[in-house]
Write a protein that binds this DNA or RNA. Structure first.
Lengths: 203, 203
DNA sequence: CGTTAGGTACACCGTTCTGTGTGGTTACGG
DNA sequence: CCGTAACCACACAGAACGGTGTACCTAACG
C-alpha cells in the first residue's frame, strides 16, 4: 500500500521502520495466520531488526492489535461511501469479493487468539458490528423494512461466505450474493412507504 | 460421552486409554483450539502417560485428524434422519443450536492448521460438503426448486452463524434461521409441481 | 501360574518461539 | 559539527513445544 514497503537498495533501510513492520504484518498475518508467523520471519520480510520491532511494539500481541486496527478503513470502508451506486447495488457490491482475500483477518484472529478479552478480539468485534451497521444504514437508505435486521443478515452472509470459502477452498461469495439479493428485494418490496422505489415494482 | 471418561479413583487408570485420549481431545481442542492445547496438558486431562498417547497415535496431527473424524456422526448426523419432522422443519431444526457449541471444530481446525492438504482439513471439507448434501436431499424431499442450490445456501448460513457467533460472542443462529425460513419457503412456494404442499400457499 | 499386551513414570532431545541485552552505526535537527 | 533519536547486528535467555527412550508395573487371559 505505502511507498515505503521495500527498502531502496539493500544498504540502510532507513527511518520508515514502523510502517515496514506493519506492512509486513499485513502481508504475513493475512496469508499465514498470526500463530504461524514468527517474529524472526516478520523481521526478515520487513527488513527490520528484531530490536526495532520491540522498540515500537511492546509485544507481539500489541502488534497484532495494531495490525487489525489498521485494517478497518481499507477493506469495506470505501464501498459504502460510493455515491455512484444505488443503495441496493452498494449492498450487493459488498459480495463481489474475488478469491484474492484469503480470510477475513478478524475471523482468523479471533479463532487463533481464542481469547475474547484480547484487544485484537475486541477490534474484531467492533469491526463486525461496524459492518453490520453500515449495511443497516444503507438498508435504511434503500427504504427497507427493519433495516437493522437486514444489516445483521447481510453481515452474517458475508461471514458465512468468508468462512466457507476458506474451509472448502472454493468461492462461496456468489451463493451469498444470491441470498442477499433475495433478502434485499424482499425487504424493499414489502416497505414501499417512504421512498419511491425507482425500478421494477411490478408483479 | 463414554462412561470411561474419568478414571475411577486416582490409582490405576486402566485399559481405556485410547478413549480417554479422544475424550480429552474433544474437550480441549474444541474449547481451546488445537494449537493452544499442548500434548502435556492433554495427557494430564486424559490421565494418560505421554508415552501411551504416542503408542496410539503416531503424531499430534494424526490425533487431530482422528478427533475430527469422530465428530461426524454426533453433530448433525441424527437430525436429518428424524422422521417425526416434515422436511421443512427438519431443515429449520438445524439452526436450533444453543450457545453451547463454541465453534464448529472443522472451521477452527481449518483456520488453525492452515494447510489444505492436512488430513484434518480434508475431513473438514468432506464434512461441510456432506452437510450441504444432506440439506440438498432434504430440500429435494420438500419439493424445492433447485434443491442443490438451497442446500448450499443453508450450509452457508450455518457456517456464517457459527463464525459470527464466535467473533461477536453473541448468538447469531436466530438470524440465520430467519433467513433460512425465507429461502426455504421461497423455494418451496415457487415449485409446487411434484409434491402437494400441505400448508398456506395463499397470498 | 506365567506370559504379554497395555499402561506408567520421568528424564530428556532438538526445535521453535517470544522477548532482551549490548554495543555499535547512521541520519537528521539545531 | 555535535547531540540525539532511530536503527542495526547478533547472541542469548527462558519457556513451550512435539516427540522419544528406558525401565518398570499390572491387569487380564490362557
Amino acid at each position: 500500500m505505502t511507498e515505503l514497503e521495500k527498502g531502496p537498495k539493500g544498504r540502510r533501510r532507513g527511518r520508515g521502520a514502523r510502517e515496514r513492520i506493519l506492512s509486513a504484518s499485513r502481508e504475513l498475518f493475512t496469508q499465514q495466520g498470526v500463530n504461524r508467523t514468527g517474529m524472526d520471519q516478520l523481521c526478515a520480510v520487513a527488513q527490520v531488526s528484531k530490536r526495532t520491532v520491540y522498540d515500537h511494539f511492546s509485544s507481539k500481541d500489541e502488534l497484532v492489535a495494531e495490525y487489525l486496527r489498521r485494517f478497518d478503513p481499507s477493506v469495506l470502508g470505501g464501498l459504502f461511501d460510493r455515491t455512484d451506486l444505488a443503495p441496493r447495488e452498494r449492498m450487493l457490491a459488498a459480495f463481489n469479493i474475488p478469491p484474492t482475500t484469503p480470510l477475513c483477518p478478524y475471523i482468523g484472529a479471533a479463532v487463533e487468539l481464542h481469547d475474547p478479552e484480547h484487544p485484537a478480539s475486541r477490534f474484531a468485534r467492533d469491526h463486525k458490528l461496524a459492518v453490520a451497521r453500515r449495511f443497516a444504514d444503507t438498508a435504511r437508505e434503500a427504504g427497507a423494512a427493519d433495516p437493522d435486521e437486514l444489516g445483521e443478515q447481510l453481515a452474517l452472509l458475508l461471514d458465512g461466505a468468508t468462512a466457507r470459502t476458506r474451509v472448502l477452498n472454493a468461492d462461496a461469495f456468489p451463493t451469498a450474493k444470491a441470498i442477499a439479493t433475495v433478502l434485499i428485494d424482499n425487504a424493499i418490496a414489502t416497505a414501499p412507504e417512504d421512498e419511491p422505489v425507482t425500478d421494477d415494482t411490478t408483479s
